[in-house]
């Protein structure tokens, strides 16, 4: 269980190793990397701003919700902020469960809520010097909402 919000890079393989060492039957991991193409073309740098304090609290609430809903055995969320280059790892979510269904769903639930509810804001910088704040995508909000619709 746990949240890390940090400027430094992290080692996804090492993080996976820690989760796998639990011996739990199902381990699901999502790793997000900085895109090299944005709204204005090539992205040379992505700057990530966040709201210290609120970020950690929201991510913890998301992890706890996923854990309760899908009976996860453990979960971990790592998110970076600051300047990031294309291809660098930006977010890492790993969960463990008794079965794959819960592990896949728990991991996806965390990502879908993190995208819209955790106070991060991305700014893309381009090789020509232009910069642009990334707009929130409606599809991200739709993906989050579907977890809360009556089936």
């Amino acid at each position: 269980m746990g949240v890390r919000v940090q400027i430094e890079p992290f080692d996804g393989a090492q993080e996976y190793g820690r989760l796998a060492a639990s011996g739990h039957a199902a381990v699901a991991v999502f790793s997000g990397q900085v895109r090299d193409f944005g709204y204005l073309g090539d992205v040379s740098l992505l700057e990530l701003e966040h709201y210290p304090g609120m970020t950690e609290r929201v991510l913890t609430e998301i992890g706890d919700s996923a854990s309760a809903r899908f009976s996860l055995l453990s979960w971990r969320i790592i998110h970076r902020y600051g300047p990031l280059k294309a291809g660098e790892a930006i977010v890492w979510v790993g969960v463990t469960a008794h079965h794959r269904e819960a592990a896949f769903a728990g991991c996806e639930f965390i990502m879908d809520h993190l995208k819209t509810n955790a106070p991060f804001w991305k700014k893309e910088r381009h090789p020509d010097g232009k910069a642009q704040w990334v707009a929130a995508a409606d599809t991200d909000e739709q993906r989050r909402r579907r977890w809360h619709e009556d089936s």
Binding site: G32, K115, N117, A118, W121
Partner: peptide, 10 residues
Amino acid sequence: IAFFPPMTGG
């Protein structure tokens, strides 16, 4: 109190 635009994490 904080004011901000929609969040774009991940």
